[in-house]
Amino acid sequence: MFISATIAILVVMLILLLRAALGPTVFDRILAINTFGTATVLLIALFGFLTKRPDFMDIALLYALINFTSTIAVLKLFRYGSLGKAEDE
């Protein structure tokens, strides 16, 4: 069961990579990157259970946090045109 789920996640990663490469608008790409981070979290979690060492879950959680921060940074750049001066304007 873990094997088929892992292969499914890898296929999802390929499709997301294509969407991020082709994506006509920036928002397609942002969504693809965000979902790619989630797919990486799932892949690491599945890999831990696949090799019978589910100790790597904390790394997967770190990825989830990082995914969040970079998406916020991209959206802030897109909305305000810069990263640091949103409050002054």
Binding site: R29, T40, Y63
Partner: peptide, 13 residues
């Protein structure tokens, strides 16, 4: 912008 986003994918991989 797409290059930066894809480099994020590269490091996640």
């Amino acid at each position: 912008l797409a290059v930066v986003l894809l480099s994020g994918i590269y490091s996640l991989l």
